[in-house]
């Protein structure tokens, strides 16, 4: 096995371990609680899915128009720009769901989810920064930056919504 193969295997193992730790961390506290979406949340998520789907379709329409009129896009950014459509759709869906209080399930800890997203941003951003500092810039760095940006968008939406609704938490009796 050459060095590259070993690196890929190590990366894959690291990814699986990190994923399992995060999954366990997310499930541990909420495991015994009723963490389902209620009927209003299901309906709101449906609307959010629709918004995300249309946003993604609009992005790809613009992308293919740009391609048709032969706007020059460097080859190394092609994968990133294609993935950006999915990321854009996910961002629209997530922000719409957060605005409707339909992103987190009932009894799901908001603080725990925020910590998880921060962790994902730090891991993604950290890998990118290490890559830049090493001098050998990877081809997937723009993709890495895009995922980090997606995390920041979701985190910002959650924090803004939390600030907006913090007063309503203590409702009158």
């Amino acid at each position: 096995m050459n060095t590259k193969t070993i690196s890929i295997i190590c990366l894959a193992i690291t990814f699986v371990v990190v994923f399992l730790i995060l999954f366990y961390y997310a499930k541990r506290k909420n495991g015994d609680l009723n963490t389902e979406y209620d009927e209003r949340q299901v309906a709101a998520r449906g609307k959010a899915y629709k918004a995300g789907y249309y946003a993604m379709m609009l992005y790809y329409a613009l992308y293919f128009i740009a391609d048709t009129i032969e706007i020059e896009i460097p080859n190394k950014y092609n994968a990133t720009l294609i993935f950006a459509g999915i990321a854009f759709g996910v961002a629209v869906f997530t922000v719409a769901a957060i605005r409707s209080d339909a992103y987190l399930k009932m009894n799901e800890s908001r603080e725990r989810q925020i910590k998880l997203i921060v962790l994902l941003i730090v891991i993604n951003g950290g890998v990118g920064i290490v890559n830049i500092m090493s001098g050998e810039i990877s081809e997937i760095l723009p993709l890495n930056a895009l995922v980090t940006l997606l995390g920041i968008v979701i985190l910002s939406a959650m924090l803004i919504h939390q600030k907006k609704t913090s007063g309503a938490e203590e409702d009158d009796k």
Binding site: D38, M106, E169
Partner: peptide, 18 residues
Amino acid sequence: LSQQQLADLVGVSRQTIN
């Protein structure tokens, strides 16, 4: 009852009662 208490009784989120 608070909104949260009613929400717990009927099995929905506080935001839904609101």
